[in-house]
Design a protein around this nucleic acid. Structure first.
Lengths: 190, 190, 190, 190
DNA sequence: GATGAATGAGCCTTCATTCAT
DNA sequence: GATGAATGAAGGCTCATTCAT
């Protein structure tokens, strides 16, 4: 039974992430519940408020970021350039756009970034990524002026959900931007 | 009073554009009206449906794009690289993000991009930009594989409204992305 | 100029009456103004509130009722049955339905019929018709138990505006009801 | 809770029917909800659009018409005249006026009566009544030229909601019209 | 523990009425 | 005097959240 419940919870998070990434952060929770195959009340039992669900989605993404950073550690010494490229690829595939839009709702009156509960949740990912960036910089694989938050926000910006007619009109753009960002991130001398 | 009304209409469009760019395409029309200093019914007299307002905002942006393209023509022959750089700067400063999000509302059931009334309104801007790109490509100032729509969507993606805590966390990202895109667009043989 | 204004006022009343009769008492005043070929403000100059316009429409109808009653006086002695039939025809052709629906708006909190301003305006018509009915009853042309208000309300009920699909489905009904009412009103002792 | 909900749904339909019949088809849905003792959102859960509520009310009335027709079958052979009289009584007591006004909302652009979803819902009632009328005509109890739709529309017209001051002024009129229509419908050759 | 139903608050839109030219 | 524009109040509908089974 416990396993069942945990599985259900995971399903909700996953579907919520996909929907956030696809349709933006303002999807109705009914839609999330329906997509997850549960009743709306079940969703609320697991996530007492919309913010809690957003929180969980962010946590999920953060875990993935940390995992991706960990993966990179192995090739870091042998081929730092490839390591950076792989990491950026992983991040790009990660639907960080969902993260960005998901925040929208809390943002209302928030002034102080540090105060956001999301900031705290993100911190471990930011820290891990910053450590990695430090290594990469030392090896000249990335630009000096690049912070973990910069990278996360940049990738999120590039991969944010796009209104479908737009996406259809210029489907290659996200890849172009990703390539451009990768080239730029490696630093001067183009 | 006719002049007054026209001025008011312009004010509404301007404020709507700013709000779309700042808070996304789903701002309450009440907020637009309030920001414009008019009652909600006045907004509705000028733009009978939300779609009409979006349409006007898009039109406004399209006009600006065309104007920017025109401005570029003068330096096109003397210094194509500078011309391209200036144009991209202009576009970046133009809040194209508002355009992107504004479309969201119509997008509901839209499958065919060409059918969108917005597509038609955009066409002149796309055509003008494509003509310019052709010239620039001939002069080797930009990558071959770059269409007007690509450029517009890319800039829109980069400058899309960003949730404020995010913006605060990594304020330099849009500029970084713009720079990256500029470098890439010139077609460094990658 | 005075003639012009008076003419305009009449035009508004006439169009209002038609629209009330056609589409019911809840037509937008904008529509009345447009149909009358004047601006909304002109309508309001002539009729400071919606109630005033309704009042004028009722007055107009009342005048027509009185006129119809007067017309009947001539044949009253020679052929009372024909007189009654003609009067009922006239009333039926008079769009009394407009009157009924026009009242709807004032009706909100009205308890006392006598207090209604419309009641007062109607009084002359009611009186004239009652006098005529008295004569007709004396001559056995109509049922004893028939008051002027009964007749007016009955005709108004029969000729009230009908939703178009309904009208299309059974177009003969108003005439059938008019015929039925006429027969009944003569007091055939069934 | 399922039973509870069904009951509530019935309550909404009943109250809507009364309000339509009393105040016309343009009552605020808030009022319907309040009268039914539920919140506005509950009404919308049961009837996603105003049209759906109208539809349900019509369905309710149609059911009653069919029931009334069925009831009549028993006395049809023994006393056709009484059967017809009873049926007309039943219809008159049925608030068909609600039906008529309820249609108003859909009517906007409707040209074709057959296309109306309401038309389809009504069809069974129309068919049943037409069958009965055929029998009655065979027995000479009603006029030849009388269709089911004629009867329904006529009764609806007679019992349509009346603005209260009017009703107060001539309370006997609906009964008078009903009597008149009954007499006429039997086809006394006048 | 899971579910469907209920609710109020909020946004979109219309309309009677007023105002400035 | 006539006009178009402006306005607030009200109704239609949706959605995050709570409740009863």
């Amino acid at each position: 039974m416990r396993a069942d419940a945990a599985q259900r919870r995971e399903a909700i998070i996953t579907h919520a992430r996909h929907l956030f990434a696809e349709r933006g952060g303002d999807v109705a929770l009914d839609a999330v519940a329906a997509a997850s195959g549960v009743g709306i009340a079940t969703l609320y039992r697991n996530f007492p408020s919309r913010g809690d669900l957003v929180h969980a989605v962010v946590q999920d993404i953060v875990d993935q970021i940390i995992h991706a950073v960990d993966q990179t550690q192995s090739t870091l010494n042998t081929d730092p350039a490839a390591a950076w490229k792989d990491l950026l690829s992983s991040l790009t595939a990660m639907e960080l756009g969902a993260l960005t839009d998901g925040l929208a709702l809390q943002a209302g009156a928030v002034q102080d970034l540090e105060a956001t509960p999301l900031a705290q949740v993100q911190q471990p990912a930011v820290d891990a990524l910053n450590d990695l960036l430090a290594e990469l910089k030392r090896r000249g694989a990335v630009r000096e002026a690049l912070s973990a938050l910069d990278v996360i926000v940049a990738v999120a910006t590039i991969t944010r959900p796009q209104v479908s007619p737009i996406r259809g009109a210029a489907p290659g753009v996200p890849d172009q931007l990703a390539e451009a960002y990768f080239l730029w991130s490696r630093g001067q001398q183009a």
